[in-house]
């Protein structure tokens, strides 16, 4: 295992009774940019994260996190996580619980106090240090849970649906936080929000029905060079389609959502420039123009 390898799974399998939650998954993930863990409900995302954290044991196969067995004491303070649906003790103050976690990671009482202040400051909740979790909103509790994951200097942080059920301002704050922290920590983020993951992560692990479908960069799909995605809400669909289909190299145009168009072309670079010229000529204001398909289109485009 190289020094930069964070996770190694070999034939990793987990059964719950007769149900297979994870089916012979083998993958190696390096340190670096945030990694997206995607897949529909029941794909095995939470099971995989739980195995990596040592919350559950594999039915078969091997897994190593930072070169250690999950649950190993050598991972204390190096591996951190936001487990799905896990709650802090509602009876004790936020600050008291974070200090306790920090002490368990090996910090002195003074260090634990300082680090608790630091992580609460990071999630902008220092004012809530003496508050009990039960008195906080859902979004604030989620941020506190992320704060506990940032205690110490973890090398790897696993976040299971960090923005699920969160209002847009809190979700944005969490995304900004991950982006800011990802220079020194590798995040693995499980989410259903593909748009969010596409903007946040450098690579994607795709699971479905417990099986590993693919592992790769967010933008390294060869097929991506044949597509351009345009977001424009200021023009009627039929008017835009007629004008765009007349451009050289455009083979096909599909409306994927309200104001979103997926344009198939011979050359994405030339078509992008031609589109820009066309938009300028007609005076149509667009919101976004990007080469390639969106992550959602790449993964589930054929399903719709």
């Amino acid at each position: 295992m190289s020094l930069d390898t964070l996770i190694e799974c070999e034939g990793l399998t987990k059964h719950y009774g007769s149900a297979v939650a994870l089916d012979t998954v083998s993958l190696t993930l390096p340190a670096g940019e945030p990694i997206a863990l995607i897949g529909p409900n029941g794909a095995g995302k939470t099971t995989l994260l739980s195995l990596l954290c040592g919350f559950i044991r594999p039915s078969a196969g091997q897994v190593r996190v930072l070169g250690q067995q999950p649950g190993s004491q050598a991972l204390s303070g190096r591996l951190s996580a936001l487990p799905q649906d896990a709650l802090l003790d509602p009876r004790l103050s936020v600050g008291g619980q974070l200090r306790f976690f920090a002490r368990l990671q090996g910090m002195s009482a003074q260090q634990a106090k300082m680090d608790t202040h630091r992580v609460l400051q990071t999630v902008d909740l220092l004012d809530s240090i003496n508050t009990k979790p039960v008195d906080l909103s859902h979004g604030m509790r989620k941020r506190i849970a992320i704060a506990q994951a940032l205690l110490g200097e973890p090398k790897l942080v696993l976040l299971d649906e960090p923005t699920a059920g969160i209002d847009p301002p809190n979700a944005k704050m969490i995304r900004d936080l991950i982006r800011a922290q990802s220079t020194r920590t590798t995040f693995i983020v499980s989410s259903h929000n593909l748009d969010e993951l596409e903007r946040l992560c450098g690579s994607v692990v795709h699971l479905e029905k417990g099986r590993l479908i693919s592992v790769g960069g967010v933008n390294d799909d060869a097929e991506n060079h044949e597509f351009v995605t345009l977001r424009i809400n200021t023009v009627e669909e039929s008017t835009f389609m007629m004008a765009a289909k007349a451009l050289a190299g455009v083979q096909n145009i599909t409306r994927t959502a309200q104001g979103d168009y997926l344009i198939q072309t011979d050359d994405d670079m030339k078509t992008s420039l031609a589109l820009m010229q066309m938009l300028s000529d007609y005076g149509w204001r667009y919101r976004q123009l990007s080469r390639g398909k969106t992550l959602e289109e790449r993964l589930y485009g054929d399903a719709s």
């Binding site: 954290c53 040592g54 919350f55 649950g71 004491q73 991972l75 204390s76 303070g77 591996l79 951190s80 996580a81 487990p83 649906d85 896990a86 709650l87 802090l88 003790d89 509602p90 976690f101 368990l104 990671q105 506990q148």
Partner: peptide
Amino acid sequence: SDRSRGTLRYLVLRCSR
């Protein structure tokens, strides 16, 4: 109650069962 609440997961990340 720590198990049913999930609090035990926070502890298991930092010390052994």
